[in-house]
Write a protein that binds this DNA or RNA. Structure first.
Length: 207
DNA sequence: TAGGCCATCTGGTCCT
DNA sequence: AGGACCAGATGGCCTA
């Protein structure tokens, strides 16, 4: 993993920010440069309690709480992504009521939690697959690609050991897949499977 | 400095 | 109705 000890960035104010009056938001004016809005409050908020939003959504408050269980993955202190042009466009059609703002913040929090769980799953997957570059964290796409290849390799090995044969297309047939699945079920867990693999490996080395 | 990767925000859609 | 999921957008950090 890239050790991203990123500098604490000031959070970006969004339309859902309770302190931002939607009616006064410069972005409502399509003539305004998007880059000129939403930034001014940053310096004065950085590192202050003012940066803590409702529900602790600002990274200012997440900084202390979430890093631990992240498995080295996410950086909760990262600067907030800005709202997209699309979101900005949509926003003009939907004025944020207070209730709506609260709902949005809650949704944001749930989305963060969801992404954190997803990242935890990625981390677990990284640890489950062997790879060469141990010093560097696999990216998500690398993780998925390696996992796919690893599964295919194991499938090939297991099918070979179990007497089934893969077609030249390397795609298991229904029959071979069923046979493989049966092997898994009969082996009752990965420990038995690894023992089986070890036995088979020692057998093949001895012969 | 450009490109890759990532976290986050956000609105829409689907599902329970 | 509310939550989960998804995809687009954005900006920060890191590396070649």
């Amino acid at each position: 993993m890239k050790s991203k000890e990123k500098a604490v960035k000031s959070p970006r104010r969004t339309w859902s920010d309770p302190g931002l009056d939607p009616e006064l938001d410069p972005e409502l004016d399509p003539e305004l440069d998007p880059d000129t809005e939403a930034e001014p409050a940053s310096s004065e908020q950085e590192g202050s309690e003012a940066s803590v939003r409702i529900g602790g959504s600002w990274r200012g408050s997440l900084r202390s709480g979430r890093r631990g269980g992240e498995g080295g993955g996410g950086d909760a202190a990262r600067g907030a992504g800005g709202r997209s042009a699309l979101a900005s466009h949509r926003r003009r059609r939907q004025h944020g009521t207070k209730e709506r703002n609260v709902r949005r913040l809650e949704s944001n929090e749930r989305e963060r939690q969801r992404m954190h769980k997803l990242n935890n799953a990625f981390q677990a997957l990284r640890e489950a697959i062997p790879h060469v570059k141990m010093d560097k964290k696999l990216s998500k796409i690398e993780t998925l690609t390696l996992a796919k290849n690893y599964i295919k390799s194991l499938t090939t090995i297991i099918l070979g050991m179990s007497g089934a044969c893969l077609p030249k297309s390397e795609v298991p047939t229904d029959a071979s897949t069923a046979k493989l699945l049966q092997c898994y079920l009969e082996e009752d867990g990965e420990e038995d499977l690894s023992q089986y693999l070890a036995r088979k490996h020692s057998f093949s080395q001895g012969s």
